Simulated assay, not measured.
Amino acid sequence: MVHLLHVEMVALVRELLSKFMKPEAIPLSAKDIIKVDVRSRDLQLSEKRLSVGRYCYSALNKARLERKIWVRNLYNSLREGYMKSSEFLLKNLPHCRHSLPL
């Protein structure tokens, strides 16, 4: 059961990383995923490519194009939330010697 849960948790981490990191920066193996530097801006997506949800995407995109002053703060907070959540999950990801790559 632990192996199944580990595989599911790695899948969850990969899904979260896909919200703000470049696809090529997300390791395929469970062993390598714990080493990823989620704070590296070089590995992260641009603001307009961050995952914001389908209901707010158009409104946020319009505000970004209109250069509303609050947009940058929102993107910074969103990015920080993604990084903190990823760090927490990676820190608490059980190390499983026999885990399979996803």
Results as ranks from 00 to 15, higher is better:
Val2Pro: 04
His6Ala: 10
His98Ile: 09
Ile69Arg: 15
Ser18Gln: 00
Ser29Met: 06
Ser86Ile: 02
Glu24Cys: 04
Ser77Phe: 11
Asn76Tyr: 13
Met9Gly: 01
Leu5Thr: 02
Ser46His: 06
Ser46Arg: 10
Asp32Thr: 05
Asn76Phe: 14
Met83Gln: 15
Val10Glu: 05
Lys68Val: 11
Lys22Ala: 01
Tyr55Ser: 15
Asp42Asn: 07
Asn76Ser: 15
Leu65Ser: 14
Leu100Ala: 11
Ser86Arg: 03
Phe88Pro: 01
Glu47Lys: 08
Arg39Lys: 12
Leu45His: 04
Val2Trp: 14
Leu89Val: 08
Met21Val: 02
Glu24Phe: 07
Ser99Trp: 03
Leu89Tyr: 08
Ser29His: 04
Gly81Glu: 10
Ala59Met: 13
Leu100Ser: 12
Cys56Val: 13
Val13Arg: 00
Lys68Asn: 12
Asp37Met: 00
Val10Met: 06
Glu80Asn: 13
Leu74Trp: 14
Asp42Pro: 01
Ser58Pro: 02
Ser77Ala: 14
Lys31Met: 02
Tyr55Glu: 14
Ser86Lys: 00
Arg41Leu: 10
Glu15Arg: 00
Leu5Cys: 02
Val38Phe: 00
Lys35Tyr: 09
Glu80Met: 10
Leu45Ala: 04
Val13Leu: 04
Gly53Thr: 08
Glu8Met: 12
Ser51Ile: 03
Ser85Gly: 13
Ser18Lys: 01
His95Phe: 11
Tyr55Leu: 14
Ser99Cys: 11
Arg72Glu: 15
Trp70Val: 02
Arg54Ala: 13
Lys48Thr: 05
Met21Leu: 01
Ser40Thr: 01
Leu93Pro: 07
Val13Asn: 03
Leu28Ile: 04
Tyr55Phe: 09
Leu28Gln: 05
Leu102Asn: 04
Ser29Tyr: 03
Val38Pro: 00
Leu28Asp: 04
Ile34Asn: 02
Lys91Glu: 13
Leu17Met: 04
Lys48Tyr: 03
Asp42Leu: 10
Gly81Pro: 02
Leu43Phe: 08
Gly81Met: 09
Leu16Asp: 01
Met83Gly: 05
Lys84Trp: 10
Val7Leu: 08
Leu100Val: 15
Asn92Ala: 05
Ser99Pro: 01
Arg79Glu: 10
Asn92Tyr: 15
Lys91Ile: 08
Ala30Glu: 10
Leu12Ser: 08
Leu43Tyr: 04
Asn92Gln: 08
